[in-house]
Simulated assay, not measured.
Amino acid sequence: MKVATSIVLGRQALPALAAQAVTNAMHKADITSANAVLLLLTSEFASNPQAAIKAAAKAAACTQVAGCSATGIFTEEDWVLDTPAAAAMVFGGDIKLELARHNHEQQPLLTIAAPSAMNSTWLDHHTRYGGISGDVTGQGPFSVWQNAKGDVTGHIEMFISGVNMATKAAHGLSLISTPKLVQASQQFDLQQLGRHKASSSLQKAWDSYRQTLEPLPPHLIMAVYADSAEEILQGNYQQTTIISCDEADGSITLAHSVPVGQYLSWALRDADSAQADMMLAANTLATELGNTPDFGLLFSCLGRGPYLYNGEDLDLKVVTKRFPNMPLLGFYGNGEIACINGQNKLLPYSTVLSLFSAL
C-alpha cells in the first residue's frame, strides 16, 4: 500500500518539520517520490506557511501539496495541540489527490476551508466531506493551500482517485427528549414545540433526563431536527446550538432557524455518547466499504478530542483500535462537513470519518 503518514513536533515552526514529516511518510510507504501530499501544519505556521509547503514539495518531489493550518493536528501515531508540528500523508502508486476540475466521475470532494470562505451556494455544490480550518472561535490564524501554494479563495476542493470510499459523521449526542413537531417559530426563535412552549419543553426534558435538581447546562444542549421523527431517531438529523432562552415568552433562540413543520429533539453532548457514536460510525463505515480500509481521514471539532475527553482523544483511539496500523490523518477544526440525507451540512461538535480502500 503506497499511502503512509508521519507527524513531527518541534520547538519552532521551521520548514524542516514539514520536510521531515514527508520524508518519514515516504519511507513508510516505500516510495522515493509522491503523487501528492496532504500536509497539515499547526497554527504557528499559519501567518507564513509557504516555506514549509515548499520544503514538503521538495522532499516529496512533487508539486501537488494540499492542506491547511489548524490549532491541532494528528495521525494514527499521535496528536498535538499548542506545539509547532507538521503532519503529512503521502500518496503513491495508483492513488492520487486530484483537483476538482478533473472530477469527471463526480467523486465526493475533500473540502477544507477557512470560516470566512464558507457560503451555502458553494457548500451545496457537489457531495463534500472535510472540515473548517481555524481556532475555537473561528477568528485565529489559519490558511489553506493546494498546488504547493496558498489559495486566496480560502478553500480547497479535491478528490482522491484510485479508491473506494465511505464517509459518516458522528455527532456524539444523547437524545434527552422524543421528537416533537415544531408548531411555532419566527426566524431564529423557537416558540412552541409540540404542546409546550420551547423553554418549558427543554426544562421538562432535562428534569426527566437527570431526575435531580442539577441546573440545566445550555452550553451542553443541542437542538437536533429533521423532516421526520424517524430520521432523528436514526441519527440522520441536523443540529444547532442554543443562543439564549427568553423566560418571559418561553422562546429559545437557536443558532439556526428551524421552520414550522420540522421535528425537533433536545440532545446532550457528553463523552460517553460521543465515544459510542464514534465506534458506531467506524463499524458502519467498515460494513459500507466492504473491504479492510487502507487509509482514513478524520475531521474533528476542537470541542471534542482532548478537550472533551479530559486530556485524551478517545475518538482517535476508537479509530486506531478498530483499524490497527491504518494510516490516518486529520485536524481539530471549527466545523465539520458531511453529506447527510443528500445534502452537505456544516456540523458543530462532530467528527467526520472517511475510510478508503484501493481499487
Rank of each mutant, 00 (worst) to 15 (best):
residue 1 M to Q: 13
residue 11 R to K: 15
residue 11 R to S: 14
residue 13 A to L: 02
residue 14 L to H: 11
residue 15 P to H: 05
residue 21 A to L: 02
residue 24 N to P: 03
residue 26 M to N: 11
residue 28 K to I: 01
residue 30 D to N: 14
residue 33 S to W: 10
residue 37 V to D: 13
residue 37 V to Y: 10
residue 38 L to Q: 08
residue 40 L to G: 12
residue 42 T to E: 06
residue 43 S to M: 08
residue 43 S to G: 02
residue 44 E to A: 09
residue 48 N to F: 01
residue 51 A to S: 14
residue 54 K to T: 15
residue 61 A to D: 15
residue 61 A to Q: 14
residue 64 Q to R: 06
residue 64 Q to H: 13
residue 66 A to T: 15
residue 70 A to S: 14
residue 82 D to E: 13
residue 91 F to I: 11
residue 102 H to A: 02
residue 105 E to H: 12
residue 105 E to F: 04
residue 109 L to D: 11
residue 109 L to V: 15
residue 111 T to N: 10
residue 114 A to I: 04
residue 114 A to S: 08
residue 116 S to F: 00
residue 117 A to Y: 01
residue 121 T to A: 10
residue 122 W to L: 06
residue 123 L to E: 09
residue 123 L to P: 12
residue 123 L to R: 11
residue 124 D to M: 05
residue 129 Y to F: 15
residue 129 Y to S: 04
residue 133 S to W: 03
residue 139 Q to H: 10
residue 139 Q to R: 08
residue 141 P to Y: 06
residue 141 P to A: 06
residue 145 W to G: 01
residue 145 W to H: 13
residue 146 Q to F: 03
residue 146 Q to K: 13
residue 147 N to A: 13
residue 150 G to Q: 14
residue 152 V to H: 07
residue 153 T to P: 00
residue 155 H to I: 14
residue 156 I to G: 06
residue 159 F to P: 14
residue 164 N to M: 04
residue 165 M to T: 15
residue 166 A to H: 04
residue 180 K to V: 10
residue 181 L to W: 04
residue 185 S to N: 10
residue 188 F to V: 02
residue 189 D to K: 01
residue 192 Q to C: 10
residue 202 L to A: 13
residue 202 L to S: 03
residue 204 K to C: 00
residue 208 S to V: 02
residue 208 S to N: 13
residue 213 L to D: 15
residue 215 P to H: 03
residue 218 P to Q: 00
residue 221 I to D: 02
residue 221 I to A: 04
residue 222 M to W: 10
residue 229 A to N: 05
residue 229 A to R: 01
residue 230 E to H: 06
residue 230 E to S: 07
residue 232 I to E: 09
residue 233 L to K: 12
residue 235 G to I: 01
residue 236 N to F: 07
residue 236 N to H: 08
residue 238 Q to A: 14
residue 238 Q to D: 09
residue 244 S to Q: 09
residue 245 C to W: 04
residue 246 D to H: 12
residue 247 E to Y: 06
residue 249 D to L: 03
residue 250 G to W: 08
residue 252 I to T: 13
residue 252 I to P: 13
residue 253 T to Q: 14
residue 255 A to S: 14
residue 256 H to P: 07
residue 259 P to Y: 04
residue 259 P to M: 04
residue 262 Q to V: 02
residue 264 L to G: 08
residue 269 R to S: 07
residue 275 Q to S: 09
residue 277 D to R: 01
residue 278 M to D: 08
residue 283 N to W: 00
residue 284 T to N: 10
residue 285 L to Y: 10
residue 292 T to Q: 12
residue 293 P to K: 03
residue 298 L to W: 07
residue 300 S to L: 00
residue 305 G to P: 10
residue 306 P to A: 05
residue 308 L to Y: 10
residue 311 G to R: 00
residue 313 D to M: 05
residue 315 D to M: 03
residue 319 V to W: 08
residue 320 T to F: 05
residue 324 P to S: 11
residue 324 P to W: 05
residue 325 N to C: 00
residue 331 F to Q: 09
residue 333 G to Y: 05
residue 334 N to H: 15
residue 335 G to A: 02
residue 339 C to E: 12
residue 344 N to C: 11
residue 344 N to K: 02
residue 346 L to M: 09
residue 352 V to T: 15
residue 356 F to W: 14
